[in-house]
Amino acid sequence: MNSNKIIKGKRPDFYSAPGVDYLMHMVTVLAQEHSAMRDRLDTLESVATEKGAFSPDDIEAYTPTQADLERREARRQKFLDNLFSVIAQEAAEVRNADTKQRFEQVITDLATQT
């Protein structure tokens, strides 16, 4: 963390459930980055139009090739896997009987077994 971004004065708690404040701020930052990306794409289209390369209409009129479709689908699936990885994790835990009890047992065993 950049020390120039530290604010003197205790940051208030907004939600009583731990972690929600972190999450809300993270989502806000991600929204900001998403918005900045869209602005950059918009700039890209404007510059391309101005330079005579292509226009937003060309983008709308473009028909994806089969290779485009496959590449996009693969990227989207990977993105969705990442987005919902916690769900996949939990499903795997249930499948493998990987419980909290087992987790704690491992820690206890490794500390106490001689």
């Binding site: 120039n4 208030p12 907004f14 939600y15 809300m24 701020h25 806000t28 930052v29």
Partner: peptide, 20 residues
């Protein structure tokens, strides 16, 4: 109300951070 306060605070932080 909590969501409003929380978002408002983040907007203020992002404001400074984006300039820093």
């Amino acid at each position: 109300f909590q969501a409003y306060l929380c978002l408002n605070r983040s907007s203020q932080e992002l404001q400074w951070f984006s300039v820093i």
